[in-house]
Amino acid sequence: MSAMEPPALWPLVERVGARYAAAPAWSRGFVRGKLLSDPVTPALLRLAAGWGGLGRLVDLGCGRGQTGLALLLAGLAEEVTGLDLDPAKIRDATEAARDLPARFAVADLSVAEVPEADTAMMLDVLLQMEEATQLPLLRRIAGAARRRVLVRAFDPAAGWRAALGSAMEEAGRRIRRDGSHFRPMPLEALAAPFQEAGFRVQVAPCWGWTPLPNVLLVAERADS
């Protein structure tokens, strides 16, 4: 597919946000705020537009589904499948996706089968999983993605950003008490399963205005 122009962010966020009218007020605010403030949103829109779209997209750890729906409403994805462990978030996503080519389901990514798709996307999920489950999940993703994989990850070697981000993550875990883990994988280990499966891998900063050590890994099949 040929390159496209990325959409203007504000009008797109309003379109996405309007679909969450039936969600709790906090969820509605989160969806809009996350899309507007997270540096990954414009980064994904630019990349997807440059590729001419992401085709069939699977969003792993989709939360309320706002990122996948933004790509869908922007014409940058043909259909979306989202998986997340939280049933309440999946309910919000399912209601918001009414009449769109999107489906959302509750799934434990540590054991779930990854649906085949043109593009697999996983944002800010891996570091919260048990260490022993991370590499097997990455290998399942590499086997399911036909064209490319997008992973937003935490770089534990990013100096002061990593130190600050680690402190924030640990504080958040203590406050939430949700049983989440904090096991950020070194970027070389994160890239290895995709390189072994024949993907070309690039990693670039994706922290924008924030002090966090977030990066975006882009893995593309050599024949795509």
Rank of each mutant, 00 (worst) to 15 (best):
G29F: 03
A219N: 02
W207G: 13
M122Y: 08
S224H: 09
Q128S: 08
P11H: 01
D92P: 09
R176P: 07
P205Q: 13
S110I: 02
E5I: 10
R173D: 03
S166K: 14
P11K: 11
Q202K: 13
R140A: 05
F199D: 03
R91A: 15
A88C: 11
D178R: 09
F104H: 08
T41N: 04
M4F: 08
G63R: 08
A192T: 12
S37H: 13
P87I: 10
Q195M: 02
L54S: 14
V218Q: 09
A112N: 03
L35R: 05
A18W: 08
D38H: 13
R146F: 06
V151Q: 06
R148D: 00
D86W: 07
F182H: 15
G52P: 11
A142H: 04
A189H: 13
A105C: 08
F104Q: 09
L35F: 11
E169V: 03
A49Q: 10
A8G: 14
A219S: 11
M129V: 11
P156K: 05
L138A: 03
Q128Y: 15
L72G: 00
L76V: 01
L126P: 01
G179L: 00
R139N: 02
A70F: 06
F199R: 08
L47M: 03
R147V: 01
R161F: 11
S37D: 14
K34Q: 15
G208S: 06
P115E: 12
M168N: 10
A97S: 05
P213E: 01
A77P: 02
W209K: 14
G208V: 09
Q202R: 15
R146N: 00
A23N: 11
A74I: 03
L137C: 07
L100P: 08
Q66Y: 09
R103A: 12
R64V: 09
A8T: 01
T210Q: 12
L216C: 08
C62N: 05
I175L: 15
R98G: 09
P39Y: 07
V215W: 06
V125C: 06
R147G: 07
E188V: 11
A112Q: 00
G68Y: 13
A43S: 08
E116W: 02
A70G: 08
A25E: 15
R28M: 13
L100E: 04
A189C: 00
L127E: 12
L137Q: 04
V114E: 07
I141H: 01
P193R: 04
R176W: 05
T94I: 02
P42T: 03
E220T: 03
V40K: 05
L83Y: 04
L135Q: 13
C206K: 04
A88V: 14
L138I: 04
F182Y: 13
